[in-house]
Amino acid sequence: MGLEEKLPSGLVLSTVEKLAGYMRKNSLWPATFGLACCAIEMMAAGGGRYDLARFGMEVFRASPRQADLMIVAGRVSNKMAPVLRQIYDQMAAPKWVIAMGACASSGGMFNNYAIVQGVDHIVPVDIYLPGCPPRPEALMDAILKLHEKINTEKLGPNREKIIKEVELAAMNAKPTHAMKGLLA
């Protein structure tokens, strides 16, 4: 990917990680991917009262080449899904995705032929934000949680180690329908 991948692990890498995380989280530029009602709440979050400019995020880049955060705001229909994937692919790494609203996280109230049941069928999602639509303050909370996540992201060999661990945990995890909770 870049210089940071070639650094050996150790003290130097952890300092670079801290610095890179700090820089990246403080200058996230969202790509405009407002689809439906959540888009209006996203615009309201960028408006005067709930100000996204305090994070430097009021510039919604229309071109995905210049954006690093895609806030999928609204219901993704089957016709829109390839477009979503293409926009995601056109973004340059590092990139993050917030699934805003119930429809983007899981299909929401529309469990039918037309809507993709959760945008994580198409793109990897970092933060899921429930709500129908989530208030602008909830969106800002999601962004802050994303900031924390970016701040602590690992680079280089540390990153590969973490990715392997997460994959192994996911492969060995119990599937949801086999978990017997309080209901069983």
């Binding site: 299909g107 469990n111 039918n112 032929y113 037309a114 049941q117 329908h177 017997k180 909770g181 069983a184």
Partner: peptide
């Protein structure tokens, strides 16, 4: 209608 089952624990 074409929806999918919603999974809960168990």
């Amino acid at each position: 209608l074409g929806g999918i089952d919603v999974e809960y624990k168990g």
